[in-house]
Computed example of a mutant assay.
Amino acid sequence: MNLILRPHHLLCTQSYEGRGYSPQFVENMDKITDILRKPTPTRICLKRDTDSLCEKCPNKLGENQCRGQDHVKKIDEKVLQYFHLEEKEYEYQSLIGKIREEMKEEILEDICGECSWYQNDGCIIRECVGIEG
């Protein structure tokens, strides 16, 4: 499977707990996070477009278009800037290790603070990125 991830989905895949926007979305997210969470190195392509997780999202309106598009693009850019990332291929597990090393509470709040999952405590991202909650 050739996995493409939006930058902010690097954080979402760490905190995912089996809930989502629709049964189809959850099924797709389960499949992808199962692959990503294995210790075996997994190659991903980081892109600012709709990605492998977006494929089954009911908020996807078309290629590179979703509800809340401006917000999604803004948080993708923040992830790219904070962690000095580019649109290219990475090894997922190493990239997550880098993010965990560099993550700070104020960075997490800036990126995720407006997200409904984060605000409603449905997101366990603090623990996933090594920040005490």
Rank of each mutant, 00 (worst) to 15 (best):
M1N: 12
N2T: 10
N2W: 06
I4E: 14
L5H: 04
L5N: 04
R6F: 01
P7T: 05
P7C: 04
H9I: 02
L10P: 01
L10I: 06
L10N: 02
T13N: 10
T13F: 02
Q14Y: 03
S15G: 15
S15E: 11
Y16N: 08
G18R: 12
G18V: 04
R19T: 12
R19E: 11
G20I: 09
G20M: 09
S22E: 08
P23G: 11
Q24P: 00
Q24R: 13
Q24V: 00
Q24A: 14
Q24K: 14
F25E: 03
F25N: 03
V26S: 04
E27R: 14
N28M: 04
M29S: 05
I35M: 13
I35C: 05
L36P: 03
K38W: 00
K38L: 10
K38D: 12
P39V: 06
T40G: 07
T40L: 11
P41N: 13
P41W: 03
T42H: 13
T42E: 13
R43A: 11
R43S: 11
R43K: 15
I44G: 00
L46E: 03
K47Y: 00
K47S: 09
R48N: 14
D49S: 15
D49N: 14
T50E: 01
T50K: 05
D51K: 04
S52H: 12
L53I: 15
L53R: 02
C54S: 04
C54L: 10
E55V: 13
C57M: 09
C57G: 10
P58T: 05
G62D: 15
G62W: 06
E63P: 14
R67G: 00
Q69D: 14
H71D: 11
V72P: 00
K74Q: 13
K74C: 05
K74I: 00
K74W: 05
I75P: 03
I75G: 06
I75F: 01
V79Y: 01
L80C: 10
Y82T: 03
Y82H: 10
H84M: 07
L85G: 03
L85W: 02
E86I: 02
E86K: 15
E86F: 05
K88R: 15
E91G: 01
Y92G: 01
Y92M: 04
Q93S: 12
Q93C: 07
Q93Y: 03
S94F: 05
S94I: 00
G97V: 03
K98A: 04
I99H: 00
I99A: 01
E102C: 06
M103D: 01
K104P: 08
E106I: 09
E106T: 12
L108W: 03
E109N: 09
D110W: 02
C112S: 13
G113H: 11
C115D: 14
W117K: 11
W117Y: 13
W117H: 11
Y118T: 06
Q119Y: 04
Q119C: 08
D121Q: 14
D121H: 15
D121M: 07
G122V: 02
G122C: 05
C123K: 01
I124P: 00
I124Y: 07
I124D: 06
I125G: 00
I125S: 02
R126I: 00
E127G: 14
C128R: 07
I131F: 05
I131K: 12
E132V: 08
G133R: 15
G133F: 08
G133P: 08
